[in-house]
Nucleic acid binder design. Sequence first.
DNA 1: TCCTAAGCGAGACGGTACGTCCAGTCTTCGT
DNA 2: ACGAAGACTGGACGTACCGTCTCGCTTAGGA
Lengths: 210, 210, 210, 210
Amino acid sequence: METRDDGAPRRGRPRSEEAHDAILAASLALIREVGFDAVAMDAIAARAGVGKATVYRRWKSKELLVVEAIGRIVRAVPDPDTGSTEDDLMVLMNATLRMYADPATSALLSGLVAAMARSEPIARAVRGGFVGMRREALRRVLRRGIDRGDLRGDTDLELALDLLSGPMLYRYLISGEAVDERLARGSVHAVLRAFAQDRSTEGPNLEVVR
Amino acid sequence: METRDDGAPRRGRPRSEEAHDAILAASLALIREVGFDAVAMDAIAARAGVGKATVYRRWKSKELLVVEAIGRIVRAVPDPDTGSTEDDLMVLMNATLRMYADPATSALLSGLVAAMARSEPIARAVRGGFVGMRREALRRVLRRGIDRGDLRGDTDLELALDLLSGPMLYRYLISGEAVDERLARGSVHAVLRAFAQDRSTEGPNLEVVR
Amino acid sequence: METRDDGAPRRGRPRSEEAHDAILAASLALIREVGFDAVAMDAIAARAGVGKATVYRRWKSKELLVVEAIGRIVRAVPDPDTGSTEDDLMVLMNATLRMYADPATSALLSGLVAAMARSEPIARAVRGGFVGMRREALRRVLRRGIDRGDLRGDTDLELALDLLSGPMLYRYLISGEAVDERLARGSVHAVLRAFAQDRSTEGPNLEVVR
Amino acid sequence: METRDDGAPRRGRPRSEEAHDAILAASLALIREVGFDAVAMDAIAARAGVGKATVYRRWKSKELLVVEAIGRIVRAVPDPDTGSTEDDLMVLMNATLRMYADPATSALLSGLVAAMARSEPIARAVRGGFVGMRREALRRVLRRGIDRGDLRGDTDLELALDLLSGPMLYRYLISGEAVDERLARGSVHAVLRAFAQDRSTEGPNLEVVR
DNA sequence: TCCTAAGCGAGACGGTACGTCCAGTCTTCGT
DNA sequence: ACGAAGACTGGACGTACCGTCTCGCTTAGGA
């Protein structure tokens, strides 16, 4: 974001790290308090004890700032390898479940989605951020599932990923129903069944699943 | 919206239907032209040839108006009964596909999602509107699939619905990848496979899976 | 105002006198409560228990209504004839003083003045109304003063009238100082002195002035 | 208006003088074009090439702005000292006459009067502004008249001022008759006569009047 | 006795201005 | 050249009021 790898000699007062952190912290706090798109830049700057120009010097728009602020929340995505495809998937699904359950995160989601639609840079940032990390983690697990023979070799990985991530999103954004472990486990089972090795030829895969 | 079936005698000049329709039409036109949240109430009123008060008399906020306007777009949802569960599902999925493909509708989706999150009334309106209609149509088809023996009797209908609707939403909002027939057909197949009657035995498959 | 002396046969439901009176009463009450130009026609109609059309059927504009309402306050102007020009004038001045002192009337004055400037019909109505009545009464007294020999025969009556009425208005509207008997008596004395018969002879009075 | 003499260090971008002046100029121009209370803040801001917030940052309401704008019109009040009280007074009266004759000023007067009645701050501003300046100039002349012996030592100065200013105001606002030199000269003569030293005797002049 | 014109309360209508609030930029200090 | 502070343009927001228009209803006189 504020890379300065141009080798230029960098003169003048250096940027304050405290300011940077204070802005991100203030953004998060305000987003939690009033919601994604009721946050005002004036309020963020005031809360951070910072001038508005200082904010805009670092982020080109409110949305880009908020995206980065949100990125702070979800830092680490697990990379499980228990030997069981189902268990591995459930580890990741439970992590996502926790994100939906956390009021701090969930309140942002829909506003974030709107911001992504409005602006391709934001969309890229989000896709390259925690969304991409989660997706990549799931992909690794699924690939191991294929290697292990739990899933067919011709499994459409992208489809499988969407079958795992889509239902939770849909419930959260649209139907407003519970995003809980029942849903997570149901999605996982559905994917495992849908892309399972054919029983008749390769022997009963259901045994394998466990 | 402003039904008045309370038997009260309804005094004063009645609200103008022309104004009502003109407002909705103007809203739709403007939404298509400038997008969901760049629409201005002033512009809607002006375009409709109507005072702002006339708009606010009917809808408490811009979002509620726009929600209703959007509801106008998608009126009829097909109710197919071809004899094949897969074909029936694909008819509905294709209808949804067309909605995502239609620039008029798709541009609104993310803004609408954000509005739902901001406001419970809007969420209710959307859920009760075209979202509910599509969901109900899918549910009917799935139930016929169960009756026909294509799907197991203990199929988790809500999960199946989310597996059908979620991936398209996810792709559209998050990953930005194509929402096409390949995805639709893949989702349908996955659901049919996941909830298929076990061919070899009649035993409840959940026992087996676990 | 709503004369109907055209000899036409007057068909249909006659106008309600109660409504008429209620409107005037409501106008006065509201003017007293919120001031001349903070009165809203909606409020007047509501307070009078009357539809707005009923108001506009009788008065073409808010200002014309308010003018008539104000006219109700000051009905009778005295017509004193005590034998003393000074005493007669003071009777009238005291009546005007009471008008300025009455919060009900005084609050209206400035708004009324603005309305007169905005609209010639209003100006005419006011001039022909209580302003004209007061002026006429003063004029009669002054004429008797001339007849009696208290004032010179060539007295500029209009100037004298303005010298009597202007200072009170000025204090009330502009300087905000007390409009009291001291001012009234001072004005009367000034006029009597200024237009007094020359005591010594009929000699040129301009000599005297300088 | 927005003095900042409190010794505080005044941080942030200072208010733009160009904007300030542009707003006042635009206000005056619009007032002349459309009249005192048909001026719209939007129009003023647009004409001045300024955001509305910039206007409201300086003046709390339209009226306060317009008052200050009007104050700009009449800057200098003459301070004549010809040796003749009558001539001195006529110099000032003629200046006032010109103000009433100038369409730019006169159109504002009644609206201004209403604004004064509505709001004490406005009244104070006007009284402290050009009204006060004129009044002070008249007062100085009258005092010299007393020193010179043209007027009695016990002359009620305030009364004399009101006798000079009131009639013009009254004609302008109420009777609608000409505010011309005849009126001005008549008022001056009346005041000079009314407060003249008694030539013949030193006896109290009130005896004479009665 | 019915007809028809006008009035009635209620409240919606088109317009217009209000004063507030943000976004993103710019300008003054002082560090 | 950074920092905080805060003013800048521009434009949407939702409210309030004016004077008009339309409902369904009532009240008269004339047929």
